[in-house]
Amino acid sequence: MEYLIHLAILFAIYAILGISLNLVVGYAGLLSVTQSAFYGIGAYATAILLTGYGVNFFLSVILGMLVAGVVSFAIGLVLSKFNGDYYALVSFGFNIIVFSIFLNWQELTRGPLGIPGISRPLLEIGNWKLEISSNLHFLILASLFLILVYFISRFIVNSSFGRVLKAIREDEKAIQVFGYRTSLYKSIIFVIGAMMAAIAGSLFASYITFIDPSSFTLNESIFILAIIILGGLANLRGSILGALFLILLPEILRFVGFPDSIAAQMRQVVYGVILVLLMLYRPQGLVGEYKL
């Protein structure tokens, strides 16, 4: 049971990441492979603020989002100069640069040693206090965040803002003719996506209670991309489906008899092959509405 709760928490975290990236890749058509950088910024913000300054978890979430927002705005400015595969390539680069900063800014992040002893969230309203220490409570918290992110995203994509994004994705020149500043729209959705990824990072840091740079590599970004492509681009429920499948995949592999040591690598083989097969036969993913 405890293990199921653990999986459910991971699922919630990755579903948030999936939704956050789907806004950028699925709705705006920008092939960004740098989401784990913002995920990492959120995680480090929470880790540093909780262990070093005793800041409340919920405040650290907001601060982490702000940092991720500022960084992603700067990155988005550079990225807005590129299109298509060059966009993807430059976004790779930013992931690696941010990863290098996690690894090398040792005064702040302790580098490869990582930050241990991150406390669980503490809910404090007036005199009433609740420490979310059990995994079940944490699952409820993570689910609440997931629901919040899901509904905010749904609101965004169904709004006129979201429709402009889809129009940019389909034909950027055409929508420019109507007087929309497309670069502004692209920057805004990129920043929103990054801030949502930072929430997932804060949850991750507080749940695992230890983080190091190895959780925020380029591979992690590719994994998040696999989630949304598998589930379906431009479909928020698809991202949830994709996260569910890829989180359960190692368990399925273990169930059919692969040893633990191989299950993790086997997952990579499976999702790598899935990506190839999807591109060959179903480029919009399972329930997607947009083809790359």
């Binding site: 092939l31 492979v33 298509g84 595969d85 993807a88 591979n219 590719i222 991309l225 696999a226 492509i229 191989i262 690598q265 086997m266 997952r267 990579q268 083989v269 999702y271 790598g272 092959v273 899935i274 990506l275 190839v276 999807l278 591109m279 060959l280 480029p283 083809k291 790359l292």
Partner: peptide
């Protein structure tokens, strides 16, 4: 599109790398 080819090659990359690791 180039993006499809890029994602497909990313998938192939991940799979081959993991097979080598196994």
């Amino acid at each position: 599109s180039n993006m499809v080819l890029l994602v497909a090659s990313l998938g192939a990359f991940t799979a081959v790398q993991a097979i080598i690791a196994i």
